[in-house]
């Protein structure tokens, strides 16, 4: 019974998202035709923007994207709902679970708690950038080999947090791993596999085995 109800609410959320997505496109299209220039000019002069959609430029995985978004849209929603870059997941949506972790200027951040407009001028890196021609990064490879996921929903966030962590701590102890990745949660409880994966990835990265 409980399961059914949950499924129903998930389906509801999806519809709502699709609705918002559709509405966003229409509204921004309309504004682009009529009021966008005024908004952009006002923004340039006053540093004042919104509450309607305003031009926002994001640099994601080395590519520049120009969007028209309300200031209240988070970086995570901008990527998932407006750019169709959906590797980063939305779970708790309040800076707790880590599923949305991406890198901002090489540092891991909760994209659900950064406004897209705040992210202007920063370099954003997501899970999509880690594979090259279908080849997994050393961290991804280690997660795969060590069974470091079950349902896999937390995995992109973990992989991003782990990638940034190993950059700074190439020889981590288990204690450092637990503290360093403390911002990411796995409800399936695959922490044993994750610990093994991080240790193995550290080894692989030291061995200079770029891309596994």
């Amino acid at each position: 019974m409980r399961k059914k109800r949950k499924l129903k609410s998930e389906a509801g959320a999806l519809t709502r998202r699709d609705f918002l997505k559709g509405a966003g496109v229409t509204v921004s299209g309309g504004l682009l035709a009529t009021g966008a220039v005024t908004t952009a000019q006002a923004a340039a002069q006053e540093g004042v923007v919104g509450p309607g959609p305003v031009p926002i430029t994001l640099r994601i995985n080395g590519r520049v994207h120009r969007l028209s978004l309300e200031p209240r849209i988070t970086l995570l929603d901008a990527l998932r709902d407006h750019l169709n870059i959906t590797g980063s997941k939305k779970v708790c949506d309040r800076a707790t679970c880590g599923a949305c972790t991406m890198l901002m200027d090489k540092k891991p951040v909760y994209a659900c708690t950064v406004l897209a407009i705040e992210a202007e001028g920063h370099d954003i890196t997501t899970i999509e950038s880690l594979t090259e021609n279908g080849r997994l990064s050393p961290v991804m490879e280690a997660f795969w080999k060590n069974d470091a996921q079950q349902c896999g929903f937390c995995t992109p966030g973990f992989v991003m947090a782990c990638t940034a962590f190993l950059e700074k701590n190439p020889n981590p102890t288990l204690e450092q791993i637990e503290k360093g990745l403390g911002g990411n949660l796995c409800r399936c409880g695959t922490y044993a596999g994750i610990r093994r994966a991080v240790l193995e990835a550290a080894k692989a990265m030291k061995g200079g085995q770029a891309n596994g």
Partner: peptide, 11 residues
């Protein structure tokens, strides 16, 4: 969860 609309100022 989406905040209410607001005007954004970046001094």
């Amino acid at each position: 969860m989406i905040p209410e609309p607001f005007e954004y100022h970046s001094p």
